[in-house]
Nucleic acid binder design. Structure first.
Length: 563
DNA sequence: GCCGTTTTCGGCCCGACTGTTTTCAGTCG
């Protein structure tokens, strides 16, 4: 699959063109094409083979020709020409905060800055400060940008960001005369990783909110502070942008700052065609404001359904909304249980009872106890004798407690030789079997996972790609084949909610759903509080267009038992 | 470089904030 490579090439070309002062529209055309290719669910080579490149929005004659050349010859002459026209390391400097293409271009032309080393030198010797429009503060800001970049970590997992956002919102709520408070941006869209946090606060008196926010103890540095907007860094150098918005334009601002950028650009074009204009203050027909207090105003005025934030990526949701055909996304209240939790029996930190209590507190009807199997020595995996004992214990608890149905299960290892870690006889005695690859990541993984899916006792395939965010690419596996096997056998694919996993991700989920597969959300909780992370998996499911019928967690206990 | 039932040429989203200016350029989102 060459989608990522080609998307990356176009993005790189955009960077260089921007640096060379090319008109912004051309730069944007490359960026838009890059995003469109990244968002493809199909292999671009398939699309190319079927001569459908021009159907990709943002790909016209010119870019299609470049893609064609690359797929035919493994080479793109325009890419070489553009990228080789500037020193390779120069382009990377564009990702330094407060240093944009204009400044960098001048530094390159006048001071021959070609890499980070050079940049630091001209900062030190004062020659950068001699350039026009350069003052002490700009120099200082570029220094800070470099420091931030050298510390690394550009994005964090949604699982880290979300609790942080909730804490900030909790504090902001205490300010008097404050109305709606929402996270915006990638957090509201439930993107798997988050670059910064946007929070919108509804209030007429903005200064009090800005002042109070500025006094929060979490803040490590104030970046900017205006009348309606404040940017700060909080613990771990995460940027938080706070905006204070009056009531009558709050909806428009929420729409605007939720993004995504691609979604908004598309929406604006449609508005323009209809003789309207959208900005962060509202939607206007001529001089007349026709909406803006509620987010729904914007979509309604354009004659479309309100679009859930998780879908706002310009992946076809706008067309669906225009035709009133948006999926009815699965909601938190549809969820009847969690399939994948661990207890003290293996490597969890709580008893079965404690996990069940937490599930009941969440309003669930069932919980799947799925401790590790015998080969998982590192995780205190259960021998056949111990899991039989655990089944008896669960039966005993179920007779005592009617609040919640505890399902006896296992997270059984798919061994390197393709067998499962328990006998079929033993697996047959369990309510749920989650099969998981924990070793042999490069050994015939596709084959092993398909074999597991074909085992009649296996209910769910755990974390199907094995990726760990920021750490590990995942198994060498042909996921499309695995998904098709799951469709054939009625095996569900897991959406693992662990903050580092989020596996399957949104695109895979959408593909699986379209193929007719079922999804099962599991928190993989090793402690009761981690069961709260179900909403991460739910976010992924929603981003993947899942409806109630696609998600096993929405089944009642009885239907689930027969399933 | 893309796009089009108002256009095959002439548009392409736009405002806040900062910093360096003295009316605006650059950066960001």
């Amino acid at each position: 699959m060459k989608n990522a490579v080609i998307a990356e090439m176009f993005d790189r070309m955009a960077d260089v063109l921007e640096l060379k002062g090319e008109i912004s529209f051309k730069v944007n055309a490359y960026r838009r094409a890059s995003r469109a290719i990244q968002n493809l669910e199909e292999d671009i080579e398939t699309i190319w083979n079927e001569e459908r490149l021009h159907q990709i929005p943002g790909i016209g004659t010119g870019l299609a020709k470049k893609i064609d050349e690359y797929l035919r010859t493994d080479h793109m002459s325009k890419y070489d020409e553009i990228v080789q026209s500037v020193p390779p390391e120069l382009v990377d400097l564009l990702h330094i905060q407060n240093l944009g293409p204009k400044t960098l271009a001048v530094a390159y032309q006048k001071l021959h800055v070609e890499n980070l080393e050079d940049l630091k030198k001209v900062l030190e010797n004062g020659s950068l400060a001699q350039l026009p429009n350069m003052g002490e503060k700009k120099i200082e800001n570029i220094r800070k940008g470099i420091a931030l970049r050298e510390k690394g970590r550009e994005r964090i997992s949604l699982g880290i960001a979300l609790p942080l956002v909730e804490r900030l919102i909790h504090e902001l709520r205490k300010i008097p005369h404050v109305g709606r408070i929402y996270p915006a941006g990638s957090v509201r869209r439930m993107c798997e990783t988050v670059g910064d946090i946007d929070i919108l606060v509804e209030a007429e008196e903005s200064e009090r909110v800005i002042d109070t926010f500025g006094s929060f103890s979490e803040i490590t540095r104030m970046i900017s502070r205006g009348k309606t907007k404040s940017s700060v860094l909080i613990e771990g150098d995460l940027q938080v942008d706070l905006r204070v918005i009056p009531r009558d334009s709050f909806g428009a601002a929420l729409q605007y700052f939720t993004g995504s950028k691609a979604h908004n650009v598309r929406l604006r074009r449609i508005a323009k065609k209809q003789g309207c204009q959208i900005n962060e203050y509202g939607i206007f027909r001529g001089e007349k404001k026709i909406g803006g207090a509620k987010e729904e105003d914007i979509y309604e005025a354009l004659g479309m359904q309100w679009i859930p934030p998780e879908l706002r990526e310009d992946r076809g949701e706008i067309d669906l909304a225009m035709e009133s055909r948006l999926p009815d996304l699965v909601e938190l209240y549809d969820i009847n249980g969690d399939f994948h939790v661990h207890t003290r029996w293996s490597d969890g930190s709580a008893s079965i009872e404690k996990m069940a209590e937490k599930a009941a507190a969440l309003g669930y009807h069932f919980i799947g106890i799925c401790d590790h199997s015998q080969s998982a020595g590192y995780a205190n995996g259960l021998t056949p004798e111990r899991i039989l004992e655990q089944i008896r214990e669960i039966e005993r608890l179920n007779t005592q407690n009617n609040d919640i149905c505890i399902l006896a299960g296992t997270e059984v290892d798919i061994l390197a030789d393709g067998r499962l870690d328990y006998s079929d006889d033993l697996l047959a005695r369990l309510n749920i079997v989650i099969a998981a690859v924990h070793s042999g990541f490069k050994k015939r993984v596709t084959e092993r996972m398909i074999a597991a899916a074909r085992n009649p006792h296996v209910t769910i395939l755990a974390h199907p790609t094995g990726r760990l965010l920021f750490q590990r690419e995942g198994y060498i596996v042909d996921l499309e084949q695995v998904i098709r096997a799951c469709v054939d056998t009625g095996t569900a694919l897991e959406i693992n909610c662990n903050e580092e996993r989020l596996d399957l991700n949104d695109r895979h989920i959408r593909f699986a759903k379209e193929q007719g597969a079922k999804l099962a959300i599991g928190t993989d909780a090793h402690h009761p509080h981690q069961m709260d992370y179900l909403r991460l998996g739910l976010g992924m499911a929603r981003r993947g267009c899942c409806e109630k019928k696609d998600v096993l967690n929405c089944l009642s206990v009885n239907t689930l038992r027969s399933h």
